[in-house]
Design a protein around this nucleic acid. Structure first.
Length: 216
DNA sequence: CAATAGATGTCCT
DNA sequence: GGACATCTATTGG
């Protein structure tokens, strides 16, 4: 079974609301020094943009933490939150733009033993379901901030099998108050690896996909 | 099941 | 000082 080819730089160099739904079904891969390959299929992501009150890039200028988010597309932006968790994003948009897609959940494919050891649970549905769980399962932390997914060796994003639009659902973003009305969370409708129980609409029912502009 | 407390960096007012 | 792109353990119905 092939997981496909690396996604090229140009894939990431667009606005986050366009890249986010197209990341579903793609495969995050990590090569460990001992040869182990960790792989998981993305099933839930969220888009963040400049001028978006929920985004770390809201102010339009980088801070020491958010510098990577404003850099070239195709790199990993890792941040530390709530005093104990790491979350990771794929940087999108042109260099200089503070735009990224938060990786929220994935379906584990290979390297499950290592993920189990990293996560202290044997339940496959709890290995990568949640942004901080995903980073913990993959061993992604501060050292991985800024890693290039396009040219780098240890972390890559493979093309996998993108989802048909009708199997993609949308909702408001999780854990967001300011800017919470934007329906910028995208997930695989049928996936057992997505947190359930939140109102959603089919992506194909949303007419303004990829523009990111909202009325008013 | 639901609600809640606790862990405590980073950025903002 | 307070909020936060979170998760886990524990308590109560």
């Amino acid at each position: 079974m092939t997981l496909g080819r690396r996604l090229p730089r140009g894939f990431f160099g667009r606005r986050s609301t366009a890249v986010a739904p197209e990341l579903l079904g793609r495969v995050l891969v990590r090569h460990l020094p001992d040869g182990t390959r960790l792989a998981a299929r993305l099933v839930e992501v969220e888009a963040y943009e400049e001028g978006d009150p929920a985004s770390h890039s809201y102010r339009g200028r980088p801070t020491p933490r958010t510098e990577v988010m404003f850099g070239p597309p195709g790199r990993l932006y890792v941040y530390f939150t709530y005093g104990q968790h790491f979350c990771c994003n794929v940087v999108t948009g042109a260099n200089g733009r503070g735009s990224a897609v938060l990786l929220r959940a994935a379906e584990p494919l290979t390297g499950l033993e290592v993920m189990v050891a990293n996560r202290q649970t044997i339940d496959a549905r709890l290995l990568c379901s949640g942004p901080a769980r995903l980073t913990q399962a993959f061993g992604i932390a501060r050292a991985e901030n800024g890693t290039d997914l396009v040219r780098g060796e240890s972390l890559t994003l493979l093309s996998g099998t993108p989802l048909r639009r009708r199997s993609i659902a949308r909702s408001t973003r999780i854990g967001v108050n300011e800017g919470g009305e934007r329906p910028w969370r995208f997930f695989e409708r049928e996936s057992a690896f997505v947190s359930p129980g939140r109102p959603w609409t089919p992506d194909h029912a949303v007419g303004e996909r990829a523009t990111g502009s909202r009325r008013s």
